[in-house]
């Protein structure tokens, strides 16, 4: 398949499937209660999916060279801030500051 066609197939299919997931309980099943087994599984979807998404991004060796050590340390700092404050902005600030500090101190 050609590149542009591939991309647009993905855009339309993922866009539709995502919209279906977003609408599901808000619109389609609004009058029905969630089946207990599904409710049980849904409870753990964000924790599991977010963790599976984040961990490789943090552990991956950066393209610019160097080890993943500074990123893991910075992520631990950011995780503690996220847990204590619940603020996205503070988490981002603390994580980036920690990473820059660690990169700067290991280079200089």
């Amino acid at each position: 398949m050609e590149g542009a066609l591939k991309l647009w197939t993905v855009i339309v299919a993922v866009g539709l499937l995502n919209y279906f997931s977003r609408m599901s309980f808000i619109a389609f099943f609004a009058r029905r209660s969630v089946p207990p087994l599904l409710a049980r599984a849904l409870r753990y979807v964000p924790a599991a999916m977010l963790s599976a998404l984040i961990v490789p991004m943090i552990v991956a060796v950066p393209a610019g060279g160097g080890g993943s050590g500074p990123r893991v340390a910075a992520a631990l700092v950011a995780g503690a801030v996220a847990w204590a404050t619940g603020s996205t902005l503070k988490t981002l600030g603390a994580g980036m500051a920690a990473l820059w500090l660690l990169q700067w101190s290991t280079q200089g």
């Binding site: 409870r43 963790s51 991004m57 996220a82 619940g86 996205t88 981002l92 980036m96 990473l99």
Partner: peptide
């Protein structure tokens, strides 16, 4: 690009509400 996992980390931390939630995240990770 490190901002991306950090944005998700800010969402993951409040999802750690109970022992099973933490276990789900650890197993997946």
């Amino acid at each position: 690009e490190f901002a991306v996992p950090l944005c998700f980390l800010a969402l993951l931390a409040p999802a750690m509400r109970s022992v099973p939630h933490v276990f789900a995240a650890v197993v997946a990770g």
